[in-house]
Amino acid sequence: MAKYTGLEEIIKNYKDLIPLVFHKNELLFQEGESAKGIYCIESGNVKLSKKEANDGDRIVHLAAKGEILGLHAVVNRHNYTNSAVALTKTHSCFITADDFLKLIEDNNTYKLLVMKSLCSRIDTMENHINRISDKPSDERFADTLLMLVNKYGLNRSRELNIHLSLDEIASFTCTSKSYMKKIISDFSQRGLISFSGGIINIRNLPQLENIVNLSSKAALPS
């Protein structure tokens, strides 16, 4: 989960901030285009994906309210390394790259906040790498569901507060679409979840935790 670092406040208090609204499936920025600025999500969810060699898209991160996008591209003055697409109607504020760099230029305290914010995202990425590497697909899926519950929470009907298509779930857990379909139907039959129209209903959280814990228990040194 994104850690609050205080950088959000500094961006939000900037005088020349540009408010932007994106509709579902609208592009915030595209991988490879020069980094024009930084987005701070005020409400909504955004997926970050990267192009793969076989023309597919790989979701590398799911962002929520309060997260900052495009930071590392702006700081390093290179192109955006991923594409950001709104998953729901998303409100964000935007600060141009030049404005942001000027804002932090002579302020080492601000720079430290940028560093903290980057560290937090790297941790998230590395946790994700751990989740997807060297584990069977069903564990990856269970682990990903727990992460999503933790990050986005459940509504009153125990539905995840983020809607994802089958394609998106498969891409994020690094599983083929057809196999993902099989796992979802297996999980549904076992009464763990139900899934329809992008809505994931968590029906048995302790059992999902069990699936993940059983494997990490085996990892403890004997």
Binding site: K50, N54, H72, N76, C119, M125
Partner: peptide, 18 residues
């Protein structure tokens, strides 16, 4: 340096997956 690390971590995800 941290920005670079983040970029690397991202690329690792696509590399691992595919």
């Amino acid at each position: 340096l941290l920005s670079h690390d983040l970029k690397e971590a991202e690329s690792r995800i696509t590399g691992l997956a595919q």
